[in-house]
């Protein structure tokens, strides 16, 4: 089953005015249960707007969506959902522990186990020491940790995190990543918004790239970062003298010792190259399609979409 299903979703803020903004444009997406999903995009791409629509905080202009199999307009489905907003304010007069208790109750989670669960969560986000301190004294990083605990307090099946590592130091980020992996192991689905690509690359199973409200690409990190047209070869023996002959026929973009980087147009051309190596008696140790970082791909994709405008 899919934890999220979005059909032809569009959002225009302030329609029919001069200030009209198309924040989302005919957005379609399905995310299977148990996935850590990363939505990437530059500032203003529409990431936060998408989450807010899924949670009923903002309304879609057209289209519809389901979370956990229920229409998003049915507010009761949010019992099983957690959310860490981009900016979050808690009643300053409450302590960290009281904040968790309040939002748990509001989520309809009032088990006899609640106190124990809160205790456990506070330990998990390393805020146990501060649980009796009023939140008005918390730092940005502490707020973020409390926010994460708050997003998990009702034992949700689906968790939305909007820029979760914002304002958190590197150690904190590592801790947050570990928590995300734990949640995944428990079978939870996680939807993550971020503009920090390296972060996302480390935790997500699938990613989508959003720019100006348009979904540019979606797939596994593997799929998105593998550029099928560039191959790295490594050889046992390679007759250096032949290289110029190869260059006449193929586009060799790198050559160093027994290593060669080649661009091919398609699989047919790749096999032609392999045949040629075989004919020349070259011993191939490995052929590896070149992997870009998510960042490389992201930048080229955004550029491309800019040029096409």
């Amino acid at each position: 089953m899919n934890c999220i299903e979005i059909n032809n979703l569009s959002k225009i803020f302030n329609p029919n005015t001069k200030k009209a903004v198309a924040a989302l444009n005919d957005f379609n997406l399905s995310i299977p249960n148990g996935t850590i999903f990363g939505l990437l995009g530059p500032n203003g791409a529409g990431k936060t707007t998408l989450i807010k629509i899924l949670l009923g905080i903002t309304y879609a202009s057209t289209g519809d969506a389901k979370i956990l199999g229920e229409d998003i307009l049915n507010y009761k489905v949010k019992r099983k959902v957690g959310y860490l907003p981009e900016s979050h304010k808690y009643p300053p007069y409450l302590t960290g522990e009281q904040v968790l208790k309040f939002y748990a109750k509001l989520s309809g989670y009032s088990h006899s186990e609640l106190d124990k669960r809160i205790e456990h969560l506070l330990k998990q986000v390393k805020m146990n020491k501060w649980k009796n301190t009023k939140v008005k004294a918390y730092s940005k990083g502490m707020m973020q940790r409390l926010g994460l605990a708050q997003a998990m307090v009702n034992d949700p099946e689906l968790i939305f995190l909007d820029e979760p590592t914002d304002g958190v130091d590197p150690i904190g980020r590592k801790e947050i990543r570990d928590i995300l992996f734990e949640l995944k192991n428990e079978g939870k689905s996680i939807f993550l918004n971020s503009h920090l690509l390296s972060e996302v690359e480390m935790v997500t199973d699938r990613v989508a790239i959003l720019d100006k409200g348009v979904l540019l690409k979606e797939g596994t990190v593997e799929e998105l970062t593998t550029d099928k047209e560039i191959y790295n070869f490594e050889f046992e023996n390679f007759v250096n003298a032949n290289i110029d002959l190869y260059k006449e026929q193929f586009s060799i973009i790198g050559h160093k010792g027994s290593k060669l980087t080649v661009t091919v147009n398609d699989t047919r051309e790749l096999n032609k190259l392999l045949d040629r190596f075989r004919n020349d008696g070259v011993l191939i140790k490995s052929v590896v399609p070149q992997k870009n970082t998510l960042e490389d791909m992201f930048i080229s994709l955004i550029k491309e979409s800019e040029e096409n405008k």
Partner: peptide, 9 residues
């Protein structure tokens, strides 16, 4: 604060 409140059931 409103985002958080409205995200609850």
């Amino acid at each position: 604060s409103i985002d958080l409140l409205l995200s609850k059931p």
